[in-house]
Amino acid sequence: MNLNELVNRNKEYTKHGNVANYIPELSKANPNCLGVAVAKCGESVIAAGDSNIKFTIQSISKPLILIMALLDYGEEIVFSKVGKEPTGDSFNSIRRLETINEFTKPYNPMINAGAIAISSLIKGKSNNEKIERILNFIRKLSNNNDIKINMDVYLSEKRTGNKNRAMAYFLKDIGILEGDVEEILDLYFMHCSIEADIIDLANIARVLACAGKDPLTNEVIIPRRIVQIVNTLMTTCGMYDESGEFAVNVGLPSKSGVGGGIMTVVPGKMGIAVYAPALDKKGNSVAGVKLLEDISNEYNLSIY
């Protein structure tokens, strides 16, 4: 089957799940959308379905700011603030921060608490400088200089992000966060509200698939060791508490976001991105996951 046929076959799954509504602006998404983009190493991007719809990347920003923190500070400092283990809990859970006495840091960078800790490590004299650095990095990876923040979603997240606020103040209390908590949260809300489409995300995933190299110039944008770390953490933690099942059924490093996107890496071959905003109870795109299962099986892409 080609991509169009696979999209059509999985369109029925857009009727399952619900768009995110805990961030009010996200509830405006059309739940019937489904699209996929594939960016092979050394080839042009191909797409099918609803490929040009802009949406906020939400938690798909987490591996990207992790890359920046690793570039800025190195592994020792970054992983003194956050762990490398899956939690088995939901992405916005605060429970394990309080109940594991000897583990006084978030379990991994792909959950909200971990990403807030990583946000505190982004270099810059001000939040304006930090978010501009993040935007420029994502623009380079996506080969799209028009990447920007959706201000309506950002303000909506800022108004309603009380659980994230609670996590951040807890992290401050146990010494993980340094600096002003509200500024760190503001940066977190901003990078979650960055807007893109699946072609942009497929381009980003392709850099991770091609060992950190820009496929157009062959420039090394991300060192191979950092690519290895990020791809591994996306495999073990990138689909929240559904990561194990996803690894069995799809078998590829991936990161989902509650905006409905999933960014997937096929090491050495291609980047894939899907969009379908109706989510399951774990916060992952229902039709997007099903479509990725079909693509992985159809083209024998699983890394296992």
Rank of each mutant, 00 (worst) to 15 (best):
A48L: 07
V36L: 09
S156R: 09
F170S: 11
K81F: 00
I116Y: 04
A276I: 11
L97E: 01
L6V: 13
L66A: 07
D146G: 11
L171R: 12
G283V: 07
L252V: 14
E298I: 14
R96F: 12
G114V: 14
E76N: 13
K125M: 08
A247M: 11
L292Q: 08
V19E: 06
L185G: 11
L291D: 04
A209I: 09
G17V: 15
F55S: 13
P109H: 02
A273R: 01
N164L: 09
G283E: 00
R133F: 04
S285P: 12
N231G: 10
P86V: 10
G288M: 04
N92S: 02
M263E: 00
A278T: 09
S142L: 01
N128A: 15
R206H: 01
D50C: 06
K81G: 03
Y169W: 08
K40E: 08
N249Q: 04
I176M: 11
G42H: 05
N112H: 03
I138W: 01
S296N: 03
T232V: 09
A166R: 04
N4G: 13
T232I: 10
S120T: 06
V265C: 02
I147S: 01
R225C: 00
S27W: 08
G268Y: 02
V36K: 10
R165W: 05
V289E: 00
V227Q: 01
I122V: 15
A276G: 15
P86L: 01
D50K: 02
N143H: 14
P253L: 00
N4M: 04
A39L: 04
F103Y: 14
